[in-house]
C-alpha cells in the first residue's frame, strides 16, 4: 500500500502542473503580505483611546437592531446576540481591540485562500483516475498483482495528502511571512468565541489551526465528490466542472433553501461549515454538531461506495 502511494506521489509531482499549483499558493501569500505591508506603511494604525465608548455605542445600535428585526429571524438574532455578548465581554475585562496588524491577523486573513486550495485539490482529484484512462496507462496499471480497490484507495489517500500538504504550506508560509512583515502582537490577546450563549477565551494559535481544519472540511467533501465522479465517469472535465460549480454555488443555494425549507439541512453544503457550531449560528435552526457530522459521514460513504463499486467492476476497454 505504501509503495502504491509513493507511485501516485511520484506521478503527481513529476508533472509541471502540480508544482505550478504549489507555487501559486506561496506567491499568493507573499503578494497579500506585500500589499498589506504597503497599506500599513501608507496609513499607520492609530491607537484608539475611546474604544470603550465606541463599543458601547455599537452595543446600543445592535440592541436596537435586535429589537427590530431580530425577533423574526433566528439567524440574525443569534448574530446580534453574539456581537453584543463579545463586545460587553471586552469592556468588562478591559480587552482593547487589537489595532496593530500582526502575524495572527495575517494567518486569519489568509484563510480566504483555502478556497483556492479547494479548487486545486478538486483539479487533482478530478484527474486522478480519469487521466490514467486518457493516457491509456490504466491497462498497464490494472494488470499487476494488486486489487483494484487497493489502487483506488492509494489514489484517494494521495488526494487527501495533497490537500493536507497544501493547507500546511498555506499555514506555515503565512506564519513565516506574517512574522517577518508584521511581527507578534505586543500583548497576546485571546480569541473570544461565543458558545451556547456564553463568551469563552481561546488561544489564538490553537483557534487558528482549528479554524483551518474546519474550513477544509468542505474541501475534503468536494474533493471526494470530484474523485468519485472521476472514477465513475472517467471524465475529468465533468468532475472539475460539477465540483467547482457546487463549491461556488452550493452554499448560496443551500442558504436560500434553508431560509424556507427545513429539509435543506439534509443538503451536503448545509453541513460542511462545522465552524458555526463552535462560534456562530447554524443555517437551519435545531441543527447540531452531531447531526452535521453524521450527514457528512453518510455523504462520504456514499461517494466512496460509488467510486469503489464502479471502479472495481468496470471493464477496461479504452
Amino acid at each position: 500500500m505504501g509503495k502504491l502511494i509513493i507511485n501516485e506521489w511520484v506521478k503527481l509531482f513529476r508533472r509541471a502542473g502540480t508544482m505550478v499549483l504549489v507555487g501559486i499558493v506561496i506567491l499568493m501569500v507573499l503578494g497579500i503580505g506585500a500589499f498589506l505591508k504597503y497599506e500599513e506603511i501608507q496609513n499607520p494604525p492609530q491607537e484608539n483611546q475611546n474604544w470603550k465608548q465606541d463599543l458601547t455605542v455599537q452595543i446600543e445600535g445592535d440592541r436596537a437592531a435586535l429589537e427590530e428585526t431580530g425577533q423574526n429571524n433566528a439567524n440574525l438574532k443569534m448574530f446580534y446576540e453574539r456581537q453584543i455578548a463579545i463586545n460587553e465581554y471586552q469592556i468588562e475585562h478591559d480587552l482593547a481591540p487589537e489595532t496593530n496588524y500582526n502575524v495572527w491577523s495575517f494567518i486569519s486573513e489568509n484563510m480566504g485562500a483555502i478556497g483556492f486550495i479547494g479548487v486545486f485539490t478538486i483539479i487533482i482529484a478530478a484527474g486522478m483516475v480519469s487521466s490514467e484512462f486518457s493516457w491509456g496507462t490504466i491497462k498497464l496499471l490494472l494488470i499487476r498483482p494488486m486489487n483494484r480497490s487497493k489502487i483506488l484507495l492509494s489514489k484517494y489517500i494521495t488526494v487527501v495528502l495533497f490537500g493536507v500538504m497544501m493547507l500546511t504550506i498555506l499555514y506555515v508560509v503565512s506564519a513565516v511571512v506574517g512574522l517577518a512583515l508584521f511581527g507578534l502582537p505586543e500583548e497576546s490577546l485571546p480569541h473570544l468565541a461565543f458558545v451556547n450563549g456564553e463568551v469563552v477565551e481561546r488561544s489564538l494559535f490553537l483557534n487558528l489551526i482549528g479554524e483551518y481544519f474546519l474550513s477544509s472540511i468542505d474541501v475534503l467533501m468536494l474533493a471526494t465528490m470530484a474523485f468519485m465522479i472521476s472514477a465513475v465517469f472517467r471524465n475529468s472535465s465533468l468532475a472539475i466542472g460539477l465540483s467547482l460549480f457546487l463549491m461556488f454555488m452550493g452554499s448560496s443555494i443551500t442558504m436560500l433553501l434553508a431560509a424556507r425549507y427545513e429539509w435543506a439541512k439534509y443538503i451536503l453544503f448545509a453541513n460542511t461549515n462545522l465552524a458555526v457550531y463552535f462560534d456562530g449560528v447554524p443555517p437551519v435552526e435545531g441543527m447540531t454538531l452531531t447531526f452535521s457530522i453524521v450527514m457528512l459521514f453518510l455523504y462520504f460513504v456514499l461517494f466512496q461506495l460509488l467510486a469503489f463499486f464502479v471502479f472495481s467492476k468496470r471493464d477496461v476497454a479504452a
Partner: peptide
Amino acid sequence: IRHIGAIVENPEMYKFLTGYQNLMQYARM
C-alpha cells in the same frame, strides 16, 4: 496475474516520467 507480463495494444507509458521512472512504477507493484 503475477505470472503474466503483458502489453495490451500500444504500450502507453507516463510520458512525463523517464523510462527508468516508468519501470520503477511497475517494479514497486
